[in-house]
């Protein structure tokens, strides 16, 4: 029984991590048709923002263990990544709308530059971001069952982000404009929506979410210049499996991949588990080429 609960929890946790890294991509790719290969690098920027906050402010804000710096790093990483994303949108992406494959090339180049920049600024070796005391350890439910706080934290964080994104898209004036532009750009422009502004802000929102994911991932993985490359392919799988442009599909896809990956891995090995999951994704896309969202709309 314990083993089943633990494994379900592990699956949920992996799903939440996948969702975290792919949510921002779902914005850029799903809503705007931009294949942002530099998405992983924005995750990396978020992680380094957390590192900078730890180095710069941990002492003045009650020490590393108290974790005030960590809480502050989350909005800060959002801002830093969003600003850099906006910069990229203004200087590069906006010339490429309607040419999704060209965005792939240009953002790939931008990704190389960002990686090298991280290497030049922070050095090539990995850096460490410590955990606040309240993220160490976990809920102990007896012999075999211990649920780490960090994983629970990430699940909660993802839930909060999804709530915020939902609110932004469907309950705010900005979100309404965004949806209007995505549905019919000309009409929206005619009615006075500044579509340029909407483009820039949507892209920045996507990269900002990547930044937040970066802060959360510092608690589980390594922080180095090529951090983003570990997540980018998985993120694309999630978005495509979910169905491009469908937020509920993305959520479902992330959880499905997460749970099936952990279950298959338990039965076999990490390598075989991953291969089986990929096979399943391919088979599913054969069957429903437009992803999980197709199941919902029909």
């Amino acid at each position: 029984m314990d083993a089943i609960i633990l494994q379900t929890f592990n699956g949920l946790s992996l799903g939440s991590i996948l969702l975290m890294v792919s949510l921002g991509l779902a914005f850029a790719f799903g809503l705007m048709g931009v294949i942002n290969m530099a998405h992983g690098e924005f995750i990396m920027i978020g992680a380094y923002t957390a590192y900078v906050f730890q180095e710069a402010f941990a002492h003045s804000l009650g020490g590393v263990e108290a974790g005030v710096w960590f809480v502050l790093a989350i909005p800060a990483a959002f801002l830093v990544a969003a600003l850099l994303g906006a910069l990229m949108e203004v200087t590069m992406i906006r010339f490429l709308y309607g040419r999704p494959l060209d965005t792939l090339l240009a953002t790939w180049g931008a990704g190389l530059v960002l990686q090298q920049a991280a290497r030049s600024i922070f050095g090539a070796p990995n850096v460490n971001v410590s955990s606040p005391i309240w993220l160490q350890g976990g809920f102990d439910f007896g012999a075999q069952l211990l649920l780490p706080y960090k994983r629970i934290f990430i699940i909660v964080l993802v839930a909060v982000i999804i709530g915020a994104v939902y609110f932004y898209l469907y309950r705010s004036a900005n979100g309404r404009r965004l949806r209007a532009v995505m549905q019919n750009r000309e009409m929206a422009s005619c009615l006075g929506v500044r579509s340029r502004w909407v483009d820039a802000s949507t892209f920045a929102l996507g990269t900002g979410l990547a930044g937040v994911a970066g802060v959360a991932l510092t608690q589980l993985g390594s922080i180095g210049p090529s951090l983003g490359t570990f997540y980018i392919v998985d993120a694309f799988m999630v978005v495509v499996l979910g169905g491009v442009g469908r937020l509920p599909g993305t959520i479902l896809a992330a959880l499905l991949i997460g749970i099936s990956n952990t279950l298959l891995e338990l039965g076999t090995s990490a390598t075989v588990g991953k291969v089986l999951v990929l096979l399943a994704i391919i088979a599913f896309l054969q069957w429903k080429p437009s992803g999980l969202a197709a199941l919902q709309t029909r």
Partner: peptide
């Protein structure tokens, strides 16, 4: 630092010579 040049080359070609 060669990755700067390669990355910028990609960006430049896509933007200037689509």
């Amino acid at each position: 630092i060669w990755q700067y040049f390669l990355g910028l080359l990609f960006v430049a070609v896509v933007l200037l010579f689509p």
